[in-house]
Amino acid sequence: MVEPVFLWRRLVGAQIRSQLQYRASFVLDVTGAFLISFIDFVAVLVIFHNVPQLGTWNVHEVALLYAVSSISFALTDLAIGHLDQFPQKVRDGNFDILLVRPRGTLYQVICSDFALRRLGKAAQGGLVLVYALASLHVDWTVGRAALLVVAVPAGTVIFASVWVVGACLAFWTTDGGEFTNAFTYGGTFLAQYPIDIYSAWLRRFLAYVVALAFVCYFPSLYVLGKPDPLGLPRLLDFASPLVALAAALAAGMIWRGAVRHYRSAGG
């Protein structure tokens, strides 16, 4: 159990060292990401500039929703943001070598990159969270605190699972072995397949729909002690860690199935 983390940590360490070498550019990157992600929150503020409440939610409560989903999303992006380029990697034929190594392919793909600059977005989410919690009068209990703490990692896992499943579509972009293009050394955008366009959309889909459901909605309801405006069972408030687990397992299985297809239909 410790060992896989060990390899990943080495990767992260190497990436950090490498990216910190260009310190100025890195700081600019992170700051840029930080500022840009504020735009999303500004949209929330603009809406509340016009109304005191959205449904039964006021601005601070929505800020909490936003913060939890934003931090989770940013952490996922940090760890597996590079999955966006995965379809191209498969098309270039750079996935095959992973099958010649004595490790699981999903694990190797995750360990192939790490985007330190997304820290900016996570930091922004953190600030909004502080703002939200400071402005809200939460009736803190151990349960509520625990759920809030768990909500972020659980959210990260949920996002990651959906993202991985989305990336699996890359295994269907090749039509069959050497009989379609695979050798575009350096990659040419003009030969790009639809999956890439699709995966960009998938990210936004994740950020809103999935986030709204399990990552932040239910835990927030519990933390805030709100009755659910949608009238769904209260048990769902605790669903996120379980959903995270189920999602991770499902993603792993789907990935394995996708690789199996790839290995028989034509690498």
Partner: peptide, 18 residues
């Protein structure tokens, strides 16, 4: 890439509702 268009239409519709 007609399927990309289909996928896109689907996504746009969902976002529209949201």
């Amino acid at each position: 890439y007609p399927w990309a268009t289909v996928a896109g239409v689907f996504t746009n519709t969902i976002f529209g509702f949201l």
